[in-house]
């Protein structure tokens, strides 16, 4: 495909390879950003969730051909302002001790960070409708608490 330039976590990158390749594999294999996880390959589980221009996107189902010039992509590695200053969602995940195996949690955190932008004070029903990522450890009860905690943190900030 014709070369496109875009940013990942604020860094400029370009791509002119196979446009059929999903963004997930570009991130994990080409860019070496392993925090974005492979779970199903059909956009169902959400383990591969990243932000594309601020929106939560399941990167396993976004071919590189659909990534346009100037697109801004954020992965879990770029969510925090710095290693010592985590994003409020990451902080809330630690404070509620959400992760068990942890494999899906980068996707859960990315989905939540995008969700809270449009739902700054979510109800349980909002969370049920808006957060659809799969967690096989069943951390959902703690995820619900962590989402509310993160929302409270972001409103105070």
């Amino acid at each position: 495909m014709a070369a496109v330039s875009f940013t990942i976590n604020g860094k400029q990158v370009s791509f002119d390879g196979d446009g059929d390749m999903p963004l997930l594999w570009f991130l994990r294999e080409d860019a070496g950003l392993k925090g974005t996880k492979f779970g199903c390959g059909i956009g169902s589980c959400g383990a591969c969730t990243v932000h594309v221009n601020g929106d939560a996107v399941r990167s396993c189902s976004l071919p590189m051909a659909a990534v346009e010039d100037g697109t801004s992509i954020t992965t879990i590695e770029g969510l925090a302002a710095s290693d010592s200053q985590l994003h409020p969602v990451q902080e809330a995940w630690l404070e509620e001790d959400v992760p068990q195996c942890g494999y899906c949690q980068a996707g859960q955190i990315m989905a939540t960070a995008a969700f809270l932008k449009t739902n700054p004070n979510p109800s349980d029903d909002d969370i049920d409708a808006g957060i659809t990522n799969l967690c096989r450890c069943g951390t959902y009860v703690r995820i619900r608490k962590a989402i509310k905690r993160a929302a409270a943190k972001m409103q105070q900030a």
Binding site: G32, L33, K34, G35, T36, K37, F38, T75, I76, E77, A80, D83, L86, Q90, W93, L94, D97, V98, P99, Q100, G102, Y103, Q105, A106, I109
Partner: peptide, 21 residues
Amino acid sequence: RPNADAPAIVRGQPIYGLDQT
């Protein structure tokens, strides 16, 4: 005690088998 690996998990660090190269 919280999950000892949680700080690495929430940062997306490459701690799983599938992350290795």
